[in-house]
């Protein structure tokens, strides 16, 4: 599998980042290198191996259903813009 400029553009667009031509070109090479490596991995025979669903060997830790209070001012303190305890963002509507 290989990645061309249009795929890089698409991924950048989905990730909402702007790339210069040069960055785009670099990323294309890096991504292709990674995919080549994955192709190498695919050559290993895994017929007898159970698929690994996660890199963790332990079970997920759970917590009790208890409420901890939060602080509105604190949560809004990093907001570039706020109004009446709302975050304010440029108009987004589909």
């Amino acid at each position: 599998m290989s990645i061309d400029n249009s795929v890089v553009k698409k991924i950048a667009n989905l990730s909402k980042i702007n790339l210069s031509e040069k960055e785009s070109e670099n990323l294309k090479h890096e991504l292709n290198k990674i995919l080549d490596w994955v192709d190498d991995l695919k050559k290993v025979d895994t017929k007898m191996v159970e698929p690994m669903l996660s890199v963790f060997n332990e079970n997920m830790k759970m917590r009790d259903d208890k409420v901890e209070l939060t602080n509105t001012d604190e949560i809004l303190s990093n907001a570039p813009d706020k109004k009446e305890n709302f975050f304010v963002v440029p108009k987004v509507i589909e």
């Binding site: 813009d81 109004k83 709302f86 975050f87 304010v88 963002v89 440029p90 108009k91 987004v92 509507i93």
Partner: peptide, 8 residues
Amino acid sequence: DFENSFID
């Protein structure tokens, strides 16, 4: 608001 969206 005309220009902004509010987030909760």
